[in-house]
Amino acid sequence: MQTIRAITLDLDDTLWPFAPIGARIEQTLHAWFETHSAETARMFPPAAMQTLREQVVEAHPDLAHDMTRLRKLTIERALKDSGADVALAADAYAQFFMVRNQIEFYAGAREALETLAAHLPLCSLSNGNADLDAIGIGHLFVSRVGAREFGAAKPDPRIFHHACSLLGEAPENVLHIGDDLAADVHGAQAAGMPVCWIHPAPRQAGVADYQFDSLADFADAFVRARSKDA
């Protein structure tokens, strides 16, 4: 492997699958509304809530980088449209955030993360709103970059450059690892960074510097390469 001095790392669908989290979020919110705002639950069952969220996203293109604000706006809109007290939104969002951070790592992903953190400084680089401390892995990262806080989302090269600056390294010496072809692979390449694309086989020649089925597979290959070079 080429000289790598630091790593930026995507979170959702790289360390853990997001789909089951999303499903639990909608179920939990609906159950919460059934208890605290029955009319909201009646008007906005999970499918209707998803449609409402899509409408809110479409109405606020300026907030495309801020998943937290979009979620809060959706909750507030559901409460308002159903004639409920919008002040309930804070408690509803708290329920969302609790479930949002109840994740299940891909097999070997947490161990791989610990292995990589022992060798190189890591910076999380995410468009989402996972809380690394709530999940229990915050100590493995020397820095964190979120689209909401930065003000722009991947694949904007600026967010990658910001992460590199926090790591104190030039982009060509920072490997980005992620699952999304547009946001992660193309974004990192536009920023002048090497990239590892985490996705199931078959491989696609020339798409990324490295391709692996999982973070665990990458970490194994990385450690072997380091041992050979030592």
Rank of each mutant, 00 (worst) to 15 (best):
T3Y: 06
I4G: 07
I7M: 13
T8W: 03
L9W: 00
L9D: 00
D10Y: 05
L11I: 15
D13V: 13
T14D: 14
W16V: 09
W16C: 04
A23S: 08
I25A: 01
Q27E: 13
T28D: 14
L29E: 07
W32D: 06
F33T: 02
E34V: 11
E34S: 06
H36A: 00
T40I: 00
T40P: 00
M43R: 07
A47E: 12
A47W: 02
A47N: 06
A48G: 04
A48E: 13
M49R: 10
L52R: 03
R53D: 03
E54T: 06
E54C: 02
V56S: 01
H60G: 11
P61C: 10
D62N: 10
A64V: 14
D66G: 10
D66S: 11
R69D: 08
R71L: 09
T74E: 00
R77P: 00
L79I: 07
G83S: 14
D85R: 09
L88R: 13
L88D: 04
A89E: 01
A90G: 05
D91W: 02
D91N: 12
Q95S: 14
Q95T: 03
F96D: 06
F97D: 13
R100G: 01
N101I: 06
N101H: 07
I103Q: 04
F105H: 08
Y106V: 08
R110G: 04
A112W: 07
A117S: 07
P121W: 06
P121K: 05
S124Q: 05
S124T: 12
N127W: 00
G128M: 04
N129K: 03
A130G: 09
I135H: 02
G136R: 05
G136T: 11
I137K: 02
G138K: 06
R144Y: 02
G151M: 02
A152L: 15
A152C: 15
A153F: 02
K154E: 11
K154T: 12
K154F: 10
P157C: 08
R158S: 10
H162G: 08
S165V: 04
S165G: 02
L167H: 10
G168S: 11
L175K: 11
I177T: 11
D180N: 15
D184W: 08
D184C: 12
Q189D: 09
A191Q: 04
M193W: 05
P194R: 10
P194Y: 11
V195Y: 07
V195G: 08
C196M: 07
W197D: 12
I198H: 05
I198W: 07
R203K: 13
Q204T: 14
A205I: 03
V207N: 09
V207H: 10
Y210G: 09
A216M: 04
F218Y: 15
F218V: 13
F222T: 02
F222M: 06
V223D: 11
R224K: 15
R224L: 15
S227Y: 09
S227Q: 15
A230D: 14
